[in-house]
Simulated assay, not measured.
Amino acid sequence: MQIGAVKRVRLGELPTPLQEMANLEKVLGGPRLFIKRDDLTGLGTGGNKLRKLEYALAEAMELGATAVVTTGAVQSNHAQLTTAAANRLGMKTFLILKGDKPHQPSGNLFLDRLLGVEEIRYVAVPSDSGKEEFESLLQNEVDRLMAELRKRGEVPYYIPNGCKAIHGALGYAGCVYEIVGQLRAMNLAPNYIVTACGTSGTQTGLVLGSILYGQGEIKVLGMSVSEKRDKL
């Protein structure tokens, strides 16, 4: 689905399936529950980041980017999927990961290398630093790497962890469009959409999609995976 004139590059196998969770419904005694299988987007190990990257990397291509820089944790799904997507589009990927360099790559870090990441840098988290201080250290490393790449003749494009809010919103507004259509084919309409919430891009898009395709009647519930209740 295309939203207005915003450019998008197709990377995923969309729409993803919508599956009913019949056994869980029985345990809970209702209501009807469905799961949107965005783990089956068809690139890398799947996941919610691909919908966002379709817009972020379309912008990168429009700007003539030859390299993509992004950040994340050592086992970041976002970093792994960005590497896979940029590789498919012929762009180099440079990762700046939060934490110490492990002795042996495993999990997503192993996949980053398998998928052809160009370079990985690590920014250790000082034990005495606050969140804002560490984010400043991380941004300094991003700025340093971007400048180095320009000197090498690359055209770098920076994707923040989780993608820009606008790209997350566009990607997941499209997801609501799919959900509404899939349920309509069953003569159903969604009441609630529940999602994990980290950088809020996915939830923002779901709220936008509710307004655009659900007349604002679909309630969106976000479950924080990054902040405690007293900080929200």
Rank of each mutant, 00 (worst) to 15 (best):
R184Q: 09
G168E: 02
F134K: 07
G171T: 09
D143C: 10
N187G: 13
R121N: 05
K92D: 14
L109V: 07
R121D: 04
K101T: 11
R144V: 00
P160V: 01
L149C: 02
V155Q: 09
Y158N: 07
I96S: 04
N187W: 10
M146D: 09
K164S: 02
P160N: 01
A124V: 14
N140F: 12
L188A: 00
K98H: 05
I179F: 06
N161C: 09
V155M: 06
L115Q: 03
L183W: 10
E133M: 11
R184S: 08
G130V: 03
R150Q: 02
R150Y: 00
F134Q: 07
N161K: 03
F94C: 09
I96H: 04
M186V: 03
R152P: 01
E148F: 00
G174I: 02
G162K: 00
Y172I: 01
L170S: 08
E141P: 02
K151N: 07
A147I: 02
L137I: 10
G107I: 08
L183P: 10
M91A: 07
G130W: 07
G174P: 06
G153P: 08
F110V: 06
V142H: 11
V155F: 01
T93C: 11
P156D: 01
I166R: 07
E141M: 12
K131D: 12
A189L: 11
E178P: 00
I159V: 03
P156V: 00
V123D: 10
A185E: 10
I120T: 15
Y157T: 05
G171K: 02
M91C: 07
D128C: 15
R113H: 15
A165N: 11
L97G: 03
R121Q: 10
I120Y: 12
K92I: 05
Q182S: 04
R144L: 05
L137A: 13
L145N: 00
V142P: 04
A169E: 05
E118V: 10
A185S: 09
S106Q: 11
E118L: 12
Q182W: 03
Y192P: 00
P105D: 13
A169T: 04
L115H: 05
E119N: 11
R113Q: 15
E132P: 13
M146L: 15
G130D: 09
H103N: 13
L188V: 00
R150M: 02
N140M: 15
A124M: 11
I120H: 14
Y192H: 06
G130P: 09
D112P: 04
L137W: 09
Y192C: 01
D112Q: 07
S106P: 04
L109K: 08
R144S: 08
A124D: 12
E154L: 03
Q182D: 07
Y177R: 03
A165Y: 11
S129L: 10
V123P: 02
T93G: 03
N161V: 08
L149Y: 00
E135H: 09
L114F: 15
F94Y: 15
K101L: 06
K131H: 13
L170K: 06
D143Q: 14
